[in-house]
Design a protein around this nucleic acid. Structure first.
Ligand SMILES: NC(=O)c1ccc[n+]([C@@H]2O[C@H](COP(=O)([O-])OP(=O)(O)OC[C@H]3O[C@@H](n4cnc5c(N)ncnc54)[C@H](O)[C@@H]3O)[C@@H](O)[C@H]2O)c1
Ligand SMILES: NC(=O)c1ccc[n+]([C@@H]2O[C@H](COP(=O)([O-])OP(=O)(O)OC[C@H]3O[C@@H](n4cnc5c(N)ncnc54)[C@H](O)[C@@H]3O)[C@@H](O)[C@H]2O)c1
Lengths: 217, 217
DNA sequence: CATATGTTGTTAATAAAATAACAATATTGA
DNA sequence: TCAATATTGTTATTTTATTAACAACATATG
């Protein structure tokens, strides 16, 4: 699911975004290999699993700094550790989530995100029916507590799962109170200063691709 | 400018996937313009909203066949209608959803998907606590009713929101009973015959990008 | 021990996408 | 009416990503 977002880059040897996006998929595959007690895996085997070119796998993995062994392949445990390290998936980045509705609740309840580096530490909503609830140890606060909690907790990442129409006002609030990166699940494009990182997750883009493939080929 | 209507496999003028993925974002923007009674919009204004190059906007829109007016821009209503038509977002493609947990429930309950061409017509689960429930007019069935319902309803699209470890077995079942396209929300890569369309929605890829931007620039 | 072979990892070639350049032209306003 | 100009839409160029080619080499095998 991906929409290329502009990002300031000073680093000339930066990892290509397509590579970055493929790494979590590799990781998931390697974890399942580990469960099946597979010790080594070659770029060819990885490529076959994802129906892609093996040289692309090699190139992708080389960005993480991992070394394979000729005629043997890559050590699965090492692959897992290296990718987790490379992607900061053990960083437990703290995040605030705004809009604890259907999707917001699913994200908060989903424990899997923790092993991919994300720790949602608080939710915010305007609906009295959800405010002050606790889901999975995550407390839901009224919006006006954001300011104080932001100061206290030093959170850099904010997630928007409010209705589309509220996305911009929440984004403005986030910027005002020190959020550095915004993960936007609404289809609405939000406007923020250049130094703020924005990542849009658009299931609609995926849907567009699926319908196009179903109907036009 | 050439109108590109057919996107068959052999067609030289097939729409690039990046373009396809951007169209729903444009659509959302145009809808908000319509709400604000904006009648015309130029590629420059669109580009400014998304912080992108205006020629790319022009190119993207040209694939849908829409014509702009020099010095005026594009008609907003026409843009909306044309993109919806182009993306088959009024097709109400029927879909089965497997695994009515946190995420599956959110998708079923989310009415917004209807205006993006998707109509989830039934859910399937193994948990007795959810089987036979009805969410938003969508009934949850036990897995073993899939075969009969599949025959009856002629559904082409299947959604996987089960736990990761079950993704492959559900995919196999789908293929066996005639599903043509699979939308996979698990990080697990699934193996299916070449003629089956697979779209993976990976929030982990988005997360990888966010953490990379936060920590490495 | 020596040779054949599978695999990595690098460099070169190709393909795809984004950006730039620019020509055509409809609209505005003097 | 006519020149100035904003905007589309095409073609060319540049950039980025993928695929191909191949050299290096560790391992297995005879
Ligand atoms: N539900 C899904 O499966 C799904 C899938 C893809 C995208 N989305 C997107 O996610 C967003 C939310 O969808 P949803 O189905 O969870 O909606 P929802 O209506 O269930 O939840 C929205 C929540 O936001 C809260 N809210 C409203 N205004 C707020 C504000 N100003 N500040 C804080 N909270 C506020 C509401 O009280 C509600 O709890 C939408 O933009 C939708 O397009 C949802
Ligand atoms: N929850 C999220 O926000 C979220 C976000 C991103 C990705 N995901 C992915 O979505 C998947 C589901 O996540 P979740 O949080 O909804 O999990 P969940 O445990 O809440 O839901 C899984 C559901 O699948 C059902 N199930 C189990 N085995 C099944 C089978 N063989 N056939 C049919 N149904 C079966 C379970 O009964 C349960 O209702 C996971 O792979 C997860 O990685 C979830």
């Amino acid at each position: 699911m991906r929409i290329r977002t502009s990002n300031g880059k000073g680093d000339i040897n930066q990892i290509p975004e397509p590579t970055l996006r493929r790494l979590p998929g590799y990781l998931s595959f390697f974890k399942s290999l580990k469960i099946n007690n597979v010790e080594f895996v070659s770029s060819g085997q990885i490529a076959a699993n994802f129906k892609m070119d093996s040289t692309l796998v090699t190139k992708d993995l080389s960005y993480t700094g991992i070394k394979g062994r000729t005629k043997i392949g890559y050590n699965v445990n090492l692959l897992i550790d290296t990718i987790i390290q490379f992607l900061d998936f053990n960083s437990q980045e703290k995040a605030f989530l705004f809009g604890v509705g259907n999707l917001g609740r699913a994200l908060i309840k989903y424990q899997g995100l923790k092993s991919y580096g994300l720790h949602i530490v608080a939710g915010f909503d305007i609906d009295p029916a959800v405010v002050n609830n606790v889901l999975n140890d995550v407390k839901i606060h009224p919006i006006d507590e954001f300011r104080d909690l932001s100061r206290k907790m030093n959170v850099r990442l904010g997630i928007i799962t409010t209705p589309d129409a509220k996305a911009q006002e929440i984004a403005d609030l986030m910027v005002a109170w020190g959020i550095k990166a915004i993960w936007n699940f609404t289809p609405q494009s939000i406007k923020v200063p250049d130094n703020i990182i924005v990542e849009n997750t658009s299931v609609y883009s995926d849907l567009a691709v699926i319908l196009n493939r179903l109907n036009n080929q």
